[in-house]
Amino acid sequence: MAKGSVTGGTQTVTVSTLLFDVFGTVVDLHGSLNSATRSVLSANGADPEQAQPLVETWLTNLNDLMTDVRSKRAAWTSHDALTSDALHHAVTVLGMENLPRQALRNLASATHRLRPWPDSPRSLGTLADSFTVVALSNASLAGLTRLSAAGGLRWHCVLSSQAVKTYKPDPAVYRLALDILGLDPRTTMMVAAHEWDLHAAAEHGVATAFLSRPGEARASSPGAFDVQARDLSDLADQLAGRRLP
Rank of each mutant, 00 (worst) to 15 (best):
S109C: 03
S78G: 14
V69C: 13
H112P: 15
N44F: 03
A86P: 02
L104T: 02
A74Y: 11
D80C: 04
N63A: 15
D68W: 08
N34V: 01
T10W: 12
V13T: 12
Q11E: 14
H89C: 13
Q102N: 11
A103Q: 02
N63H: 10
L59E: 03
T111Y: 07
G8A: 05
A75D: 08
V55E: 01
L19C: 09
A74T: 10
L65D: 04
A90T: 03
A51M: 02
A90N: 09
G95E: 09
T12P: 07
A86G: 09
S39H: 12
M96T: 07
A36L: 00
S16K: 14
P100N: 04
A81V: 14
L18Y: 08
A74D: 08
A103Y: 01
G31T: 13
H30S: 13
T57Q: 07
L82T: 06
S39M: 12
G9Y: 13
L107F: 00
S109M: 10
L94C: 11
L99D: 01
V27A: 08
A36N: 02
P48C: 07
G9S: 15
V15A: 06
A36C: 03
P100T: 01
P53W: 14
S78F: 08
T92I: 14
S42W: 00
E49D: 11
V26I: 11
A86Y: 02
S71F: 05
Q50H: 06
L82E: 07
H89N: 15
L94W: 01
L29G: 02
S84Q: 15
H79C: 15
T111L: 08
S78A: 15
G9L: 14
N61K: 03
A51C: 06
H88V: 01
H79I: 08
R38Q: 09
A86F: 04
V93L: 09
V93T: 07
G24M: 06
T77Q: 15
T10I: 05
H79S: 14
N98R: 13
L62R: 04
V15M: 10
L82M: 12
M66I: 06
H79T: 12
R73C: 06
T14Y: 07
V27M: 07
D64F: 07
S16G: 13
L54H: 01
T67L: 10
V26Y: 06
D28V: 05
S109R: 02
V69Y: 12
L41N: 01
D64W: 02
A75E: 15
F20G: 05
D64S: 14
S35V: 01
G9T: 15
Q52T: 02
G31W: 06
A90K: 10
S109P: 01
Q11A: 12
D80Q: 05
H89G: 13
T37F: 00
H79M: 13
K72T: 12
S71P: 00
G24Y: 05
V13E: 05
A103H: 03
L19Y: 12
